[in-house]
């Protein structure tokens, strides 16, 4: 197997809170191959966004990465000095945030915000003429206009000087994608990129992302609470619950043949248009408080299959069929082989 683009080993991110330490991410192992689209699926507060912020080392204080490694192209990002980390952010790894309006800086024109990402990394010096002749500025600007057109912002020249509030939600998200793309990253972290948008716009945005993946070969981690979206868009899916990955596998396999009761629950929550009056089965209960989580499975209170043994066993991700793993007591006995493949 080729060297993975990104490999997380035992990633653990902790937020010290007054009521106790919260492991937003605990012992996560993941791999993304170059050009792969990986979906991380789970409810709000399951730690999926924290995974992305951990990769960029942008976890807000006092939160911090407590353990694990983040290998990107063979280098451990956790051990990188700040300056080298900055050279990677927005350049080799960029991130698309969830809420476009609050993520664009309200006081700068959109074009300038896209351009800044490029300027920070000294991109677009590709002009054949030396600086005073070629006009670095116009060259940079041309690249910005190209990217704006690429992500589907019509009339980029006219919108270059527009402010974020003058854009619609869909256009704002396109602008955010343009910021992320302008340096041609090899890894794109997308944190619920379509959640704040209308369904029709959602489809357009996902189309833009897919094109980025195909044409630039960028690997993508798509964080979403929408299992349907992930199934349609991703190569592989990791389902997270309470800071842990509870199931992982190829997208189609996970959706067609879910192994973990939580994944099954998520699937049952998806409304389907084709079937008439199909029942939606909500998962009972709520996401648990991550502070002072008891040992054993965190899903017990909401699981219909829970039994006494669930409380005591230290569950591991175990393989059931090719490339598909689940963390559940159901697969603790009589399994073929243990996983935690990276450890």
């Amino acid at each position: 197997m080729a060297e993975p683009l990104l490999e997380l080993r035992n990633l653990t991110t902790v937020f010290p809170m007054r009521r106790g330490a919260v492991n937003a991410v605990s012992g996560v192992n993941l791999r993304v191959q170059p050009g792969e689209i990986l979906g991380i699926v789970g409810e709000s507060g399951c730690g999926k966004s924290s995974v992305l912020l951990s990769i960029l080392r942008l976890i807000r204080q006092p939160g911090h990465i407590a353990a694990g490694n983040i290998f990107f192209k063979g280098r451990d990002l956790r051990r990188l000095p700040q300056k080298k980390m900055r050279a990677i952010r927005g350049n080799e790894i960029s991130m698309i945030f969830q809420d476009p309006l609050s993520t664009l800086n309200p006081v700068f024109p959109v074009g300038e915000q896209i351009r800044e990402a490029m300027r920070l990394h000294g991109i677009a010096n590709a002009s054949p003429l030396p600086w005073p002749l070629a006009g670095r500025r116009s060259h940079e600007k041309q690249r910005v206009l190209d990217v704006m057109a690429e992500v589907g912002i019509p009339a980029p020249e006219a919108r270059y000087r527009a402010y974020p509030h003058e854009f619609s939600g869909g256009m704002q998200q396109r602008a955010l994608i343009a910021i992320a793309l302008v340096c041609e990253p090899t890894l794109l972290l997308a944190d619920e990129p379509t959640t704040a948008l209308d369904v029709t716009i959602q489809a357009q945005i996902m189309e833009v992302m897919r094109r980025v993946n195909r044409e630039h070969g960028a690997g993508i981690i798509l964080v979403t609470h929408n299992l349907g979206l992930a199934a349609e868009f991703c190569d592989n899916i990791a389902v997270m619950y309470a800071g842990r990955i509870v199931e992982r596998g190829p997208a189609q396999q996970v959706v067609d043949n879910p192994q973990h009761p939580y994944t099954r629950g998520l699937l049952a929550c998806l409304p389907q248009i084709s079937r008439q009056r199909s029942r939606i089965d909500p998962i009972p209960g709520e996401v648990p408080d991550l502070a002072g989580l008891p040992p054993g499975c965190a899903f017990i209170p909401r699981c219909s299959l829970a039994r006494d043994a669930c409380n005591s066993v230290d569950l591991r991700l175990r393989s059931l069929q090719a490339n598909q793993y689940a963390r559940c007591i159901l697969y603790e006995d009589g399994v073929r082989y243990t996983v935690e493949e990276f450890s």
Partner: peptide, 15 residues
């Protein structure tokens, strides 16, 4: 400093 756009600026690689 807690806003999303400040986080984006950091994610862009700004010092």
């Amino acid at each position: 400093l807690r806003s999303d756009y400040v986080q984006l600026a950091r994610a862009k690689g700004a010092s």
